[in-house]
Amino acid sequence: MGHSAPAPTNSHRKLVIVVLGLAALITTMLCAFALPSLHSGPHRIPIGVTGTQQAAQDLQRGLDGDTWDVDVYASTSELQAAVEGQDVVGGLALQPGKLDVYTATAGAPSATGAVTALGDTLAADRNVAATVHDLVPFTQDDPRGSGLTAALMPMIFGGIFPALILGGVFPGHRGLRTRLAGAVLFSLVAGVAVAAVLQFGTHSITGDYWLNAFGVVLGMTAMSTTLLGLQALLGMGGFAFGGALMMLLGNPLSGLATGPHWLPSGWATLGQLLPPGAAGSLLRTNAFFDSATAGLPALVLTGWIVFGVALALIADRRGRRSPQAFSESVVVRQSTQADPQPAPAVSGR
């Protein structure tokens, strides 16, 4: 007689769940990295135009569409202020016999190339000369902004490492508050150091150093507290989910290397709402644009910090009510009451 196959054990079911989960993670990673890159390009890039009223309006009607989002400005000075204030990524000033192109390479490197090419095309059509004015360039020591782009990975790992290492050094419910305090302290020290390297070591950024450092600290704190909160509430599964969110989605969708307008609109919006994208935008605007658009990314990062701390507080409250935490507190109290002091010996005469 044949023997029936044994029923699947819990280990088998766990193995299937882990394999399927890893497959889903790899698929998500492919989508996050590949799809935005395949569809990258100019998507509603905000630019400004100025000149005579009729010429500027004609240019606006001709360009406005899926590629360009065109605003008309009354004067060249207003257009320049809009570029320097990050209201637009570039602009075109139509003048008699010439065309001036205004860009801000530090704000949107890929879009700057597209605006420059657009200016050359329009100038050729009008048989005039095009002059490019880069109002906000990268630094002379780092003209391509390599240091700014590279800063994103230390900020991401600055959020992942504290949650991972502090969780091993201070495990369990009793170490939760220590882990949270350690993550904030680490973000403070590491953020100040990263900003110092970028500004004084590689000379990749300019602006007020302490404001730049504050942006990096805020970004690291947002990522580390979020990961710690997910880890405390959901265990290693929560940590894995948070790490994938930061690395696999936040990194490619940050737009730090190209500018967010080079990604499809939906992906770009999502990227700016995740900590890596918000941290990169905050560092960029602090370093090159006098914090012109710092409000939104700072608010996003603050929201993630509040979210992470809230998760940690929920986990802390749940841990205090758990039987294990209660038994641990009983053991601690008993240990303090045990081993009474021996009576002093009486010396004989």
Rank of each mutant, 00 (worst) to 15 (best):
N10A: 12
N10V: 09
N10Q: 10
N10L: 08
N10I: 11
N10K: 07
N10E: 05
S11T: 13
S11E: 15
S11G: 10
S11M: 13
H12E: 08
H12W: 08
H12V: 02
H12Q: 06
H12Y: 04
H12F: 14
R13L: 03
R13C: 00
R13Y: 00
R13A: 01
K14I: 01
L15I: 04
L15S: 11
L15V: 05
L15N: 12
L15F: 13
V16L: 05
V16Y: 03
V16H: 10
V16E: 12
V16R: 13
I17H: 11
I17Q: 12
I17N: 13
V18R: 11
V18C: 13
V18D: 14
V18K: 13
V18A: 13
V19H: 03
V19S: 03
V19A: 06
V19K: 10
V19M: 09
V19L: 15
V19P: 07
L20H: 01
L20V: 02
L20N: 00
L20K: 02
L20S: 01
L20W: 00
L20T: 00
L20C: 04
L20Y: 00
G21R: 01
G21M: 01
G21E: 02
G21D: 02
G21L: 01
G21N: 01
L22D: 09
L22N: 06
L22R: 02
L22G: 08
L22W: 12
A23C: 08
A23Y: 03
A23H: 04
A23Q: 09
A23G: 13
A23E: 15
A23V: 05
A24K: 03
A24M: 06
A24G: 08
A24E: 04
A24S: 13
A24N: 02
A24C: 09
L25Q: 09
L25N: 04
L25W: 08
L25F: 15
L25D: 09
I26P: 07
I26S: 04
I26F: 12
I26R: 00
I26A: 05
I26E: 04
T27K: 10
T27Q: 10
T27E: 15
T27F: 15
T27N: 06
T27V: 11
T27M: 07
T27L: 15
T28P: 03
T28D: 10
M29H: 09
M29L: 12
M29R: 01
M29E: 09
L30G: 05
L30C: 11
C31M: 14
C31A: 12
C31G: 12
C31P: 00
C31E: 05
A32V: 00
A32G: 02
A32P: 01
A32Q: 00
A32W: 09
F33W: 11
F33A: 07
F33R: 04
F33N: 15
F33S: 14
F33Q: 15
F33H: 14
A34W: 07
A34P: 07
A34C: 07
A34T: 12
A34G: 11
A34Q: 14
L35I: 09
L35R: 15
L35S: 04
L35C: 00
P36L: 10
P36I: 06
S37V: 11
S37I: 03
S37M: 08
L38Y: 00
L38H: 03
L38A: 10
H39E: 06
H39C: 06
H39D: 05
